[in-house]
Amino acid sequence: MKIAIPVDEKDLGTNVCVSFGRAPYFLIYETETEESTFIDNSALTNPGGAGIKAAQIMVDNQVSALLTPRCGENASKVLQSAGIKIFKTTSASVKENIDASKDGTLPLLEDIHAGFHGHGGD
């Protein structure tokens, strides 16, 4: 199964990005093959609705689970509609979160925030 993490750099040693919609890159990790790929987040510079677009990218990459420190309600609506599970990252390290995900110790993300609509500049 494919898991995705918003990240700051295109490097396995990178940290989890504090934002989902405005993360510069996503790490897509295939749990069976242990293969990692980095994709650019084309929503990064969008004037609005970045969370929705980022969630669409998750859907289009057939991701099964998203590991993220936070997620807004619009993004969450798209992800849930596609059956993508949202887990809360528990540390800054990408590697630790992947391991925790494999062990099944990551909690589901429950505090979906109301978003920052209109505060990204119209």
Binding site: P47, G49, I52, Q56, V59, V78, S81, A82, G83
Partner: peptide
């Protein structure tokens, strides 16, 4: 360009 639409699970979502 405002990402008011998404398509998942064979369905269009309008925000």
């Amino acid at each position: 360009r405002f990402n008011a639409l998404a398509y998942t699970n064979d369905r269009l979502i309008v925000f």
